[in-house]
Design a protein around this nucleic acid. Structure first.
Ligand SMILES: [Mn+2]
Ligand SMILES: [Mn+2]
Ligand SMILES: [Mn+2]
Ligand SMILES: [Mn+2]
Lengths: 220, 220
DNA sequence: CTATAAAATTAGACTAGTCTAAAAATATTT
DNA sequence: AAATATTTTTAGACTAGTCTAATTTTATAG
């Protein structure tokens, strides 16, 4: 139905739409896809011809309903495969993304339906990202960046914003993972760094770290 | 490392080498791959440049050690995924081939090693074909076509030669599958048809069927 | 409001893979 | 051994996807 390249573009544009809340620029797509803007223009025009997105020259791209559904399908597959890799094959959460990047392109509705059942219809992938359902709907949960918490607040880690290997391995060394309870003991105005209490231990974390960890606030 | 097309060609040539015991012709590859001979010539020359096979114009192709190992790797992946689809996702054995045709191209040595362990390092795929090991070695077992058995001989079904959906579904209706015990009650010289005893029931099968079922002879 | 900078598009080239049509080599038949 | 048929290769064209370099449009600054 669609090529790998087309699917990767749709996915990238889908993610960028969340951030920009509107038309996505050629340069933004190029950066995300690690290609040149001229290549993006070509592909965006092709996807517009296929009515997967609307596009006016110099005005950026916006997915159509069809395009958004297709993008959600790819993301659903990506995240389900990540769950498979971690839960069933015991991969580490920092290793699965590049493999899922390939597996997300396997074409078979039956396969993904059975995989979903096999995995127990999970709601989230190993990085805490929600898995779209068959209809492309994504469960939005209340989550905030750790950096938004104030001194004294408590939260549970529910996901990561960046999921680079470096960051995930850093979290591992600090024994922070999905489900870890965090108590903000202090926050430095100067550089945005924080002091946390995690499992009766004190941690110092940088602003960069706190801006890449999603938490659900615990009322206390 | 290699493209999907290259891997598919290597696999096709590998299979054809088994049959022809020597150089594989351009036309044979074209038929197997469902492409035109001119396309095959192009690709064979490319694979020869990469030293995956040896090729002299008009003389056919023969895999090198490197090429044969690579082909076995792809076949290993194909068959392991088929086991996964049948054993874990409960697909039927006639549905898995086209999906495995895609999955076999996923690049990750770690993945296939873990998949193998997860499946309990199976020796055969759902159609009874042997799964090459990490080094590309294939366990050769004593098996004959059912058509080679004589009246009175007994065997156990250990595989199918053709694995089209039509044939596999026909076998299902006859309740013949891997492990089924077969007793040859009679064989017609005229058309090669056979009368079998399977689970205390008599079956008539055509020559075409008996030439596509592999059995292991049971000494009696 | 004009000059400059940034962003986006177009033009043209390249690789991978495929095809059709034509030419060349090999095999088969008479 | 020549004629014919079959197989294989080449030549040239096409699509998908990418790139560089040049051009055009839009945004920003003075
Ligand atoms: Mn991922
Ligand atoms: Mn991908
Ligand atoms: Mn198969
Ligand atoms: Mn394949």
């Amino acid at each position: 139905m669609f090529t790998h390249a087309e699917e990767n573009y749709l996915k990238a544009i889908f993610h960028l739409e969340q951030e920009t809340q509107g038309e996505v620029s050629t340069n933004a797509i190029a950066e995300q896809m690690e290609t040149k803007p001229s290549s993006v223009t070509d592909m965006v025009q092709k996807l517009a011809d296929k009515e997967l997105l609307s596009y006016k020259k110099y005005k950026g791209a916006l997915l159509t309903q069809t395009g958004r559904k297709k993008a959600a399908d790819v993301i659903r597959k990506h995240r389900l495969w990540e769950v498979f890799l971690v839960d069933k094959l015991n991969f580490h959460w920092d290793e699965v993304h590049p493999i899922a990047e390939q597996l997300e392109h396997i074409q078979s509705a039956e396969l993904i339906e059975r995989l979903d059942r096999f995995l127990g219809s999970p709601d989230f992938d190993p990085h805490g990202d929600p898995i779209p359902d068959q209809h492309g709907n994504i469960k939005r949960t209340e989550k905030k960046l750790l950096s938004e918490l104030q001194k004294g607040q408590r939260g549970v880690c529910v996901g990561v914003k960046e999921s680079s290997s470096d960051f995930l391995q850093y979290l591992d060394r600090k024994k922070i993972t999905i489900g870890t309870k965090i108590h903000v003991l202090g926050k430095e105005f100067f550089d945005g760094s924080m002091i946390l209490r995690v499992r009766d231990q004190q941690f110092f974390i940088s602003k960069k770290t706190s801006e890449n960890l999603f938490v659900q606030i615990q009322e206390s």
